[in-house]
Write a protein that binds this DNA or RNA. Sequence first.
DNA 1: CAGTGGACTTAGTAGTCTCCAG
DNA 2: CTGGAGACTACTAAGTCCACTG
Length: 753
Amino acid sequence: MGGEKNVGQARGGKAKAKTPRQRLSDKEGGSGGDAPRKSTKPNKERTKATAKSQRVEKVKVQKKVKAFKMESVESFDDDVRFNLAVKEEPEDGDFVPEKRGKKRKRPEDEPMEGPSCSSATPTLNRKLKEKDEADPRTENNTKEGIKKEKKPKKEEAEHPVTTKKKSKEEIEAAKALKIKKREEEEQQRWRWWEEDKYEDGVKWKFLEHRGPFFPPEYQHLPDNVNFYYNGKVVKLGLAAEEVALFFAQMLDHEYTTKDVFRNNFFKDWRKEMTLEERVLISDLNKCDFRELHTMHKEKVEARKAMSKEEKLVMKEANQKIVEEYGFCILDHHRERIGNFKIEPPGLFRGRGEHPKQGMLKKRIQPEDVIINCEKKSCIPEPPAGHHWKEVRHDNTVTWLASWTENVQGSCKYVMLNPSSKLKGEKDWEKYEVARRLKSCVNGIRQQYQQDIKSKQMEIRQRAVALYFIDKLALRAGNEKEEGETADTVGCCSLRVEHITLHDLLEDKECVVEFDFLGKDCIRYYNKVPVTKRVFKNLKLFMKNKEPGDDLFDRLNTCLLNKHLSSLLPGLTAKVFRTFNASITLQEQLQQLSNMTDKPAEKLLSYNRANRAVAVLCNHQRVPPKTFDQSMANLQSKIDGRREQLALAKSELKLAKKEVKAHSSDSKLQAVVERKKKAVQRCEEQLMKMEVQATNREENKQIALGTSKLNYLDPRISVAWCKNMEVPLDKIYNKSQRDKFAWAVDMTGADFLF
DNA sequence: CAGTGGACTTAGTAGTCTCCAG
DNA sequence: CTGGAGACTACTAAGTCCACTG
């Protein structure tokens, strides 16, 4: 069923159906992305066929290139005197400034506790217990912020007699408690950044955990809920029924109308059926899931309508699971696990035109799961009647459990929370590499400018690609297996059809128009003026190629990264994104913010700087469903204020007239003052709302979170907060502060990226 | 030495929670 | 007190990069 179709869908399909997201970005751009891909070859064979033919063609091209070079190399010569001694530049030395200061002795050097499973409680539980006793607020270790703040309110509710004054006191007390808690938490925090690093490759010396948490087993539908085939009730077996419910739950979603999705689903669903079911059910269009769908909707409604008490019970039950499964012991410290729950079964929802959308994501059994932990730790127990696929003791990796997912055949891992040492250390390292790049980026830039003139095609292509990666913060662009994923590209995998060259566009010379789908099928659309040399080279790279051919046919990420790491150890394509993002933030903050600004203005500047980075990195989002509505609401509010303002103004005028008439009346004078103030207030409020409106409009399609979390060196933000006397929690919420604890702790006002 | 897959980072969405204006 | 809007979290897909393999 339809399998063949899907293959075609992979690339060709892109032009047809558009995701809401694509549609969203269409309006800003030209029509370039919509042009159907005119590949001359059937898609499936394309990669390999073209790869080969390209190689043959390369020889041809090379010859042409040579000819081209002969005539054009001179015209490329440039003013810049290139400094080729990039590699020798020794500045990396300065860039390990905050070397771990005091070098505490790490507790791991002490003898490790032996296995204790057999005796009484497992070590993990015991340790957690100890912690609990020592720490009166553990109960909210996970939902800290929320619970903490909620608590005082709850208490308030319990004593409704309290007067206004008393509640004020209580609020004060709650505040004090909060501060105390925060301090305590701070004290308890593992300051791993003050410790020595382990030898190469070793990630931990002790690791103990409870294993992953499995979702509940499927329960049969109630008798009164029926599935119909061809108008007749059909009682499905457990397996087929479960999968049917997955589909029924999604009936409201656009997904279920797409052919690819439906075909994939139906094919996989039939595999779950018994023989009779399979014989009977041969056409998805004859299936009626409406009763299942209704039941599901009712369940969702019921959950929403639950009383406060019921919700609390649910919450506590969840909390218990988190307490039990959500933490591990890593080198004597209790660390939070990021994703301790096994992904429940369901229908695969890829992004964009994914050829595998709708396929069944199977239920993971303990028999599929590999456990990783310390040999001497208490090995997690598999659920009753089950066993693990394997128990491993590999301390060169950071995962606690892993399994292979059936749709794409890739590995899934249980790993630690971003606030953990393992993640934090890696993050810190990432920014240090980016800072090292800062110190030699000029040399590298000069070199690739030089390389653009190289006689070797691969070097030229590499140079132009690097130019894009550096200037536009494009992703590296690994090759992908065709038909396995949606058709998206990055820098190295750009195809001829993704760029359009304009000798002159909107008064600018040498403009390259990019239009392609990047990671997550987010459209990248940009018109960029480039140097003459880059422009000429692009023309050359595109010569004699089909729209579907690779732009950089001699280049891949592997080659590029090999070259980069020869310039600076640890340098890869993605470092440029990190570096450019962070340096942009720092520069923007410097430009936009002033010490004399009001707090709100400072925050606005920060958000603007953040936004500049998000735009650079092309971090988009779908505007909230309610966006237009809420915008309209705000607008009507603004209009209302305007009217109010006009009214206030005319009243002021009137009052002034009165004063003129009876000049000495002090009462009237006071009225004028009052009216004046009213006008002022009105004006201020109006302005505030207008700022809010522009701010919201500017943020409509831009997601700030991704860059904040992954690209901006937190030390820049911490230093800025210190300089500007802005409280850190205006910038970072609780989990962000936890993630960046290392930066918060080590950064002074004088930090420079 | 290309191809593959493992390990880890980066990504947007959906759902839930909180807060504040009316 | 309510509902709307925004903040925050959980989830999991989709990238990058590297080391291993045959």
